[in-house]
Simulated scan of single mutants.
Amino acid sequence: MTYLLLSLPFLAVGIVVFLIGAAAAHRTGAVRAYFSSWAAATVVLVVLTAVFDNIMIAAGFFDYREDGISGIRLALMPVEDFLYPIAGSLLLAGVWRLLGGEREPQRRADA
């Protein structure tokens, strides 16, 4: 089994939950904030993945079977490694939204 095939179910679940969260954000008028916060978090995760995966592979902590990857690498890491942080950010954004993560701050009674 390839790493791409292993990642696809996680990516599919992340996309479904993200789209459900997007629908909930649309109902409350928070679509722009929803997508922009997801995009910012995803960029950070992808950059961190690129940096630290390359460091760990260069240090010899782990590597990938050549027959399990597409062969496309960014420095030392296979591009399939980006699917995990992308799936995670999709899933987290959707779950956060569905749990009411963007509530208005409560006003204090003495204010």
Rank of each mutant, 00 (worst) to 15 (best):
R108Y: 08
F52C: 15
P9F: 04
A40G: 06
G68V: 00
S37M: 08
Y84N: 12
A111Y: 15
A39N: 08
I15L: 12
R65N: 14
G94W: 15
G88Q: 00
D53R: 13
A93K: 11
G100D: 00
A30H: 05
F35G: 03
R108I: 07
G88D: 12
H26F: 03
R27A: 13
G21N: 02
V79S: 09
M1H: 05
L92Q: 13
G100W: 05
V44D: 02
H26P: 01
R107N: 13
A111R: 15
L76D: 08
L74M: 01
A109W: 14
A12H: 11
L90Y: 02
F82L: 03
G68P: 00
Y3L: 05
V43F: 10
P78A: 13
V43I: 12
A87N: 05
H26K: 12
A24V: 00
V13F: 07
L4Q: 01
V47E: 08
F62D: 11
A24Y: 11
A22V: 01
I55S: 05
G71I: 14
P78G: 11
A24I: 01
G101D: 05
L6W: 10
M56R: 13
L48E: 03
G21T: 11
F62W: 15
V79R: 09
A40M: 05
D81S: 12
L19V: 10
R32T: 09
R65K: 05
N54D: 10
G60Y: 00
V46A: 09
L11H: 10
T42E: 08
F82S: 03
P105D: 02
V13D: 00
M77L: 03
L99H: 13
L92S: 12
S7V: 00
E66K: 05
W96P: 10
V51S: 09
D81M: 06
Q106S: 06
R65S: 15
D81L: 05
R73S: 08
L4A: 08
F35I: 00
A39F: 09
V47W: 05
R107K: 11
R27H: 15
